[in-house]
Nucleic acid binder design. Structure first.
Lengths: 344, 344
DNA sequence: ACGCTACATGAATGCGCATACATGCGTCAA
DNA sequence: TTGACGCATGTATGCGCATTCATGTAGCGT
């Protein structure tokens, strides 16, 4: 009576062979109804659970999917993880979860491979990720979600960052902003780079300058964004609006404004990107760009399991639309506002 | 060349036996330095990763720990998961992650057991959980974090809920509040029950009534708490303060107040419990009760791995202190709402 | 009644590894 | 020089399961 029961234990008690137990477990085979019921009864009675280790060893299918997240405390990710978890469960797949995946990706991937995961979902790969490129070269099933990696020809699920960022820029331009600060994420994150580039391009096209000191990196981090925003809002050449390439950093900017006694949007406008659920909370009411996060998460799982089933298929790149969501953190810039009020 | 390399492949190429490869992989054994280097070179060259499935089958150690969370989108959990992940990694353990564990716990646990997890961390067990009790009966290694289960004699890591809730009650009483609303979590969650009970007791001891219609359940959910708070703040017998048994619900209450145009703390005071990082954000500046979340998470992992090593040891219950953190959402009550409005 | 088929089931095998046991070699004391 | 011993390494085995092949039995037609 050491450790969990085995299929042989069940077989003995049910008076059949181990092979038969295996057959009823896997349903498909032809087993006499009476035998099946008898075996199932024994399984039920003991709460027998077949070993996924042994099964995986034989079938070469671990039922495990590795999911790598850079920072689960960043409120962007939980939504994703939730949706991924649901999709995985629906496909009889379990999640081997790794948080902090930015550091030594190599080590993480190694561990995942030891456990013979059938595939990996990277939610926060860096553009230059060696680990990702190597896996792609080996045709190991993986999908990049919300990010892409330079030169890696693999399945990718992203939002339409350029369109979203341009819409954001246009929104601020339309309001009349001409001095705009941009808070970017990690310089190695495609998401940040794409959004920042498109935003800058749109501004440039409208003849609005985006000086270097108004473009700051905050690595997708709330606290860092808060610091950077404080600096921009107290430094020279203060912006009338702050664009952040994700919502979490926009919360940081909002916190910064509040800590400085500035009103949003009266004194500064703030924009985010992603439209995570918190962005809609009364505490924020953040103007942002919506991405269909849950849908993107589901698509990632779908793509991954399709690739597992068919390794040779051509890589797909799914691009989801981005929609401008105007809430309460953006308005006409302050000077104009005064003028407008005076005009009345 | 199907599937990953095996130790036999490595052995063949290194000119040794499979057993020797296994020996160098597991370090300990006496292997000639020259042989070891040769084998390691081959392993390195091919990026060979030994199968955790096969190893687990032999050693009966999967290196997997199941972690069950009720709702990862609840900002309380990511902190926990992060800390748990780090502790697990430090012990060469991986996280098999399950979100949504409140629903069919039975099914989840079954899956975890199939994968032969060495232990399970429940972060959101319900008081009456059958699944937990059964596991405890079977002496399966598990620890309950932030929750306890009635009649389950197992390792538990919790904050000092009674002390924290009493401190919260005392704080509101000291400020002069006499009509206080209480928003509770899931009625089956020990955390909620303990906090609510201690809070009520303290009020009662001070001769302050806590009428039934001012005690509402919001299941630890932000949106539900928001709804309930709106009802209490617009209904009859409006409270001057709202105590929420966790921070996330306090955010809901804050959102409710804001949506009603009520100022916090001038018109209503709001308190939470947990002191998750967001509670300190300028957007909230929530008065709350701090629990050492990361420490509790680490202790959970420690307890679990100790129990895995020694199944027979007596169950431990670790109680961590709770500290009142006074920030900006609590103040002396407005004499009454009308007076407050008249003043404006 | 006989032989044949279809089907239910058992026996045997191997997945990749750790480990107990066996072997062969060098070393050292006598 | 010899036998005993220790060390490095090889051989054999089994973990729990899926699966292939072998076997026996019932059911069928003629």
């Amino acid at each position: 009576m050491n450790g969990p029961l085995t299929s042989s234990d069940i077989a003995r008690e049910a008076g059949v062979s181990q092979a038969t137990v295996s057959r009823v477990l896997n349903g498909s085979d032809r087993v006499a109804p009476g035998t099946r019921d008898r075996v199932l009864a024994v399984i039920e009675r003991h709460g027998y659970a077949p070993s996924a280790l042994a099964r995986g060893l034989v079938t070469n299918r671990s039922q495990l999917i590795g999911v790598i997240v850079a920072d689960i405390t960043n409120p962007f990710y939980p939504e994703f993880i939730e949706a991924i978890g649901e999709s995985l469960a629906a496909r009889e797949l379990r999640m081997l979860f790794y948080n902090g995946g930015l550091g030594d990706e190599e080590a993480y991937v190694r561990l995942l491979l030891e456990h013979r995961v059938e595939g990996i979902i990277f939610t926060s790969a860096l553009r230059s990720s060696q680990a990702v490129r190597r896996l792609v070269d080996e045709r190991f099933p993986l999908v990049l979600t919300n990010r892409s990696v330079d030169g890696a020809d693999c399945d990718v699920v992203v939002g339409d960052n350029p369109a979203g960022a341009q819409a954001a820029a246009q929104h601020l331009l339309d309001l009349g902003h001409r001095r705009i600060g941009l808070i970017t994420g990690h310089a190695e994150a495609s998401t940040s780079v794409e959004r920042a580039a498109a935003f800058a391009t749109r501004l440039e096209a409208a003849g609005v300058e985006l000086p270097a000191h108004l473009v700051r990196d905050a690595a997708f981090d709330q606290a860092a964004a808060r610091r950077v925003a404080v600096e921009m809002l107290t430094g020279p050449d203060q912006p009338t609006a702050l664009m952040c390439v994700n919502d979490v950093m926009a919360f940081g900017a909002l916190n910064a404004a509040r800590s400085l006694g500035l009103r949003v949007p009266e004194d500064v406008s703030v924009m985010g990107f992603d439209d995570i659920p918190m962005a809609g909370w009364e505490a924020f009411r953040l103007t942002t760009v919506r991405q269909p996060l849950a849908e993107m998460a589901r698509a990632s799982v779908r793509l991954l399991s399709e690739r597992i089933a068919e390794r040779g298929r051509p890589a797909q790149r799914l691009v989801y639309p981005s929609d401008l969501i105007v809430r309460d953190t953006t308005a006409v810039p302050a000077p104009d506002r005064r003028a407008a009020e005076a005009r009345r």
